[in-house]
Nucleic acid binder design. Sequence first.
DNA 1: GTGGTCTAGACCACG
DNA 2: GTGGTCTAGACCACG
Lengths: 137, 137, 137, 137
Amino acid sequence: MFLPIDPSSGLPVYRQIMDQVRRMIVAGRLQVGERLPSIRELATSLGLNPLTVGKAYGELERTHVIEMRRGLGMFVRAASAPRPHGEVVPAGVQQAADRLVLEAAQAGLTRARTVAAVEEAWRELGGRELGKERKHR
Amino acid sequence: MFLPIDPSSGLPVYRQIMDQVRRMIVAGRLQVGERLPSIRELATSLGLNPLTVGKAYGELERTHVIEMRRGLGMFVRAASAPRPHGEVVPAGVQQAADRLVLEAAQAGLTRARTVAAVEEAWRELGGRELGKERKHR
Amino acid sequence: MFLPIDPSSGLPVYRQIMDQVRRMIVAGRLQVGERLPSIRELATSLGLNPLTVGKAYGELERTHVIEMRRGLGMFVRAASAPRPHGEVVPAGVQQAADRLVLEAAQAGLTRARTVAAVEEAWRELGGRELGKERKHR
Amino acid sequence: MFLPIDPSSGLPVYRQIMDQVRRMIVAGRLQVGERLPSIRELATSLGLNPLTVGKAYGELERTHVIEMRRGLGMFVRAASAPRPHGEVVPAGVQQAADRLVLEAAQAGLTRARTVAAVEEAWRELGGRELGKERKHR
DNA sequence: GTGGTCTAGACCACG
DNA sequence: GTGGTCTAGACCACG
């Protein structure tokens, strides 16, 4: 599995791994139940310290994105159930929305332009949300 | 000036100060040309070391958000000019949009729900866009 | 006397005054023996604290650029004698040359391009060196 | 790594460190990709507080002169691309040229003498321009 | 091991 | 009064 990692990007490497794995999952390039490469495999193929990959996997497990099956490896877990309209937005999402608005407003972008950037980001993710919203899953 | 600072939030305190000041500016609660509290004042009122506040102010100055007038204090600078439609989105904004979409998609939010969260965040900011776009909500 | 002062430029105001006065002298817009405005006059016309102007005048006096005649005011002194070729370059000049070369080299400028910038700066000063070098003065 | 630091020179120590590192880079005594001594190492060998060295390194990183690789240290980044002839001179360079001309003119140096000082400074830097332009001196 | 953050406290230049 | 620099020393995240 290839993941684009930039050791000099400022973002800690283990977080980049987490982000990329999550990105592959929401984009459908990693399916529920699919097995991830072992810590050692991924570390070797990316030229990273196994401790770094281990920390990323550990965090992903702690947040229920993947699960360990002893002796078998790490596997992608089922995604969260889609939130019915009107329910509370998770803290992480609201926080990300707040930051986006702060960055956009200070850069002089309009609200419409900001929303367009979000739609564009969603399109580029190529995730399951593309086009119509699904009714069930 | 009160700023809600959470020393145990993980985000460095000096960055929280930066964010809050930027937030007040885009929300119009700090006007262009207005003076910020002195480093010592703010440090005392927030129970922080002056060096921490100084670091936040220094970063804000380097990014042209505020300016120093020697012996007088720090002052809010004029905001960026609004970007003409179609122009490139600044890297920081695109990055924030990418993260939002990642968080939202993994939390199982729909695209529409995500956009709604952004609009909500914009509304809560109380920014200058409000007046112009209020009619249609 | 008008001097372009920018209180938010980073360079201390008293140094800006010194630089501008020196600039006017080498450009010939202030002649040897000419009287400078009083501290109070200049402070008022520039909207500055008299202590600031006083510090600038004091430094200019200490470096023999101007002189005080008690009860009469501050006057421009005769310039340094031109240095015969081959003599040692004053420390301040060498230091300025070093910094220029550092900035230029790191910005990727060639040596020729750097020299051109110096010639341009000299032209814009409009000083006595324009065109031919004088033999005596 | 030895750097000549003068704590009583007026120029802040962290700026002296920055200047010296930049000087070594443009002189080719620090190569692109080369690792700098760690903050602690340099602080110890220069008898300084690690925070002071850290400030210098942080500024150099912010200006893209060096980059941090987490857990590994700071590394020299690739230099700016050389500027095509005729392009605008960066503000920092023009500012340095202006100051040089001011210092030189007031010291009574001729224009030719000033240019010679610049060429000398360039030669002493031992920069990469030397090879290309050595023939004609 | 690496750099980043924060406190406590001193001293300085500048206006 | 203002901000800027520096030391001494602790603690933390990251690799």
